[in-house]
Structures are given as C-alpha cells and as structure tokens.
C-alpha cells in the first residue's frame, strides 16, 4: 500500500484520545494499539520505539545513570534528522525533565545547580545554573508554569504537581504535531499522548500502596540483618 494512504488508514483507525484527566480513558488497549501499529513501516517502528525509550517514564526508569539517559536522548535526536518536529518534541521533553529534576534538587536542599550538563539536557542548562534561586530558574517567559510547579512541589502537593506537568507535556505534544494529520509525526504524537493518558489512568491509591509495600520488602531483603553482627553463641545464650 502507498505509504501516505497507509498512514491515513492507521490514524483514522485509532480512537480519539480527547482530553487528559477525563473518565474517557485511553480508548484503546495496549494490545490493540500494538496491533494497529504493525501498519507502520519497519524503519518508523524502530524510530517510534527509540522515541518511546527516551520519553516514556516506564522506559527511562529502567536506565540507571543520568549520563546514559543524556547519551540516549542525543542519539535519538540525531536519528530524527528527517523529522524536525519530532526532534524538537524529544528535545523539549528532555528539557522539561531537566527543569523538574532541578526543582527536585532544589527542594532537597541543593545550594547550587552544580554541573547541570551532567544531569540535565538541552538549551536551559545554563539559565538554570545562573538563576538557581529564582522560583522559575529564569525561565518564566518560556515556561510560564514553572513557578506554579515550584509552589506545588514545595507545598508537597504531588498529585497536583504531576497533573500540571502531564498537562503541559500533553500540550507540548499537541503544539508540535498540530500541522501533522496523517503522517509518522502524527502517529508518534498519538502514541506519546496515549502513554500519558494510560499512565494517569492506572494511578490508584491501592496500586501505590502495593508498590510501596513491594519496595519496602525489597529494601528489607537486601538490608543487613540486625542480628548478623551478634556471635551465634550469644544468641544461643
């Protein structure tokens, strides 16, 4: 099938995602989405996988060091030379993540940014370093929601913070894919939005407490036993 027609069929076969934070949900299951994405050309499938590997939190959380993430982001942006809007989208996503990392570091008591390029990515590193004490890191003209994010993070309102960030990322995707209706960029934008909506829709207090219990059990398993330092004879006594 002609590639253009193939993408028209693919896009129209995907349900409308709509707005984030509604009861509507993703509209399509992961399995069915993966089935539909088989219509992609092999090279586009590979590129999509690479973009997801650097933008989706579930993939990034498996990477252990900041340097690896930075290296991966640079490589993915390099591979997207033919898709400038996707390049910009990935770059902006990494920059947003850098801003959030800076907010977290400052909340944890860091007095300065240190070497931002070792844990951050993109065009805002220098501005963040030079404006460490500004609530929005001197980026309020580019990122108007940064001050609000800072306020929510300092106030410990993590749900509202997450909501704000996801809303902004959702908007970023919309802005960068606005001029693409039936092409690869539109498919990537759909998948990235789907991931955000799915991430939000699976949030639940029950699951969160289960995860916390799991993490605690894991940490306790690897922790040294309080009796390990006591000689066996003493225990017997």
């Amino acid at each position: 099938m002609n590639s253009r027609l193939q993408y028209i069929t693919l896009i129209t076969s995907l349900p409308h995602i709509g707005r984030i934070f509604t009861e509507h949900g993703t509209g399509i299951s992961r399995y069915r989405l993966e089935e539909r994405l088989k219509m992609l050309e092999p090279e586009h499938s590979r590129l999509l996988e690479r973009i997801v590997s650097v933008t989706a939190w579930s993939s990034v959380s498996k990477i252990e060091t900041d340097a690896e993430i930075i290296g991966l982001a640079s490589a993915v942006i390099q591979e997207l030379t033919c898709y400038p809007d996707l390049q910009e989208l990935v770059l902006l996503r990494m920059e947003t993540r850098t801003l959030i990392a800076a907010l977290r570091r400052r909340r944890e008591g860091a007095n300065d940014a240190g070497d931002v390029t070792s844990w951050g990515f993109g065009r805002w590193c220098r501005t963040i370093r030079e404006n460490w004490n500004d609530p929005a890191f001197g980026l309020s003209h580019i990122v108007p929601w940064a001050s609000e994010a800072d306020r929510l993070m300092k106030g410990g309102d993590h749900v509202s913070f997450e909501r704000l960030v996801l809303t902004e990322v959702f908007r970023q995707i919309g802005r960068h894919s606005a001029s693409h209706e039936f092409d690869f960029t539109a498919v990537v934008a759909y998948v990235l939005r789907w991931i955000i909506v799915e991430r939000w829709s699976i949030y639940s207090t029950v699951k969160a407490s289960e995860r916390l219990r799991g993490l605690l059990a894991e940490a306790l398993k690897s922790a040294p036993s309080p009796f390990s330092a006591v000689p066996e004879t003493e225990i017997a006594v």
Binding site: L5, Q6, I8, T9, L10, I11, T12, S13, L14, P15, R36, F182
Partner: peptide
C-alpha cells in the same frame, strides 16, 4: 477511501 477503511476498524 483509506480514511473510511481506517474509520471502519474503529
């Protein structure tokens, strides 16, 4: 037609 076929899937 391609759009119609895609829409029929959904």
């Amino acid at each position: 037609g391609s759009a119609a076929i895609g829409a029929m899937l959904d």
